[in-house]
Simulated scan of single mutants.
Amino acid sequence: MMNKLMLLFSVLFLFVACKDESIPKPYGNVRLEYAEANYIDFKTECSYTFEYSDRAQKKPKDSLCAYDLYYPKLKATIYLTYEEIGEEGIVSLIRDAEKAVYEPHTTKAEYIEPKLIVRPNEKVYGTLYALGGESAMNYQFHVTDSTKNFLRGAVYFRSHPKPDSLSPALDYIRKDVEHLMETIRWK
């Protein structure tokens, strides 16, 4: 009788103790870490030169002195467009550059943060625009010598613009864009 009672308690204990409780796990993203960039000279026949990351691939475009800097691991591209300042003057070029930042992105961007670049000794003047939120473009910039040369750039990622998951890549590419703007020289 005692054995049967022990067997009954053992079986009941197993059913009560082995209750399968599922605990929800939080959603997470893969942690992205990128190697430190080494910078190399951007050499062309154009009126400008700068240093860019060795992680990027330089690809010429059809128009004169326009290039793409493609980052395969980041799935990002910096699109560079060069223009000589003509009769229309620098004001219209800057107005067009600002229009490309503010007009299409004000509905999706949570903020647009301009950062001025002024290096009078090298005759480099420009603005870097950081666009926050779910904007298709994350950075846009322009640099000029104010008399002859005007270089415009825009950064796009080939992915859905989710600020949280793109944050490490955005920080990485921002350093490269700032380095490009800090090292640009006119020929």
Rank of each mutant, 00 (worst) to 15 (best):
N3W: 13
K4V: 06
L8T: 13
F13H: 09
F13E: 07
A17I: 01
C18G: 14
E21A: 12
K25Q: 14
P26C: 07
G28F: 12
N29I: 15
V30D: 01
A35L: 12
N38E: 12
N38L: 14
E45G: 15
C46H: 04
Y52G: 00
Y52W: 09
Y52D: 01
S53C: 02
D54G: 12
A56P: 01
Q57P: 06
D62Y: 14
D62T: 14
D62F: 15
A66L: 03
A66G: 11
D68I: 05
L69P: 01
Y70K: 09
Y71C: 01
P72D: 02
K73G: 10
A76P: 04
T77C: 03
T77W: 12
I78P: 02
I78R: 08
Y82Q: 05
E83G: 09
I85M: 03
E88Y: 14
S92R: 13
L93W: 06
K99V: 10
K99G: 11
Y102T: 06
E103R: 04
P104F: 09
P104I: 04
H105Q: 10
T107M: 12
K108A: 04
A109W: 04
Y111K: 13
Y111S: 15
P114I: 10
I117V: 14
I117A: 02
K123W: 06
V124N: 05
G126K: 04
T127M: 05
L131I: 07
E134R: 02
Q140W: 03
F141Y: 06
F141T: 00
H142N: 08
V143C: 11
S146L: 13
S146H: 11
N149Y: 08
N149C: 01
F150L: 00
R152L: 06
G153P: 00
Y156N: 03
H160P: 09
P161R: 00
P161H: 01
D164V: 04
S165Y: 08
S165R: 15
S167F: 06
A169V: 06
D171W: 14
Y172E: 00
I173S: 00
R174Q: 07
H179Y: 12
H179F: 08
W186Q: 03
K187C: 05
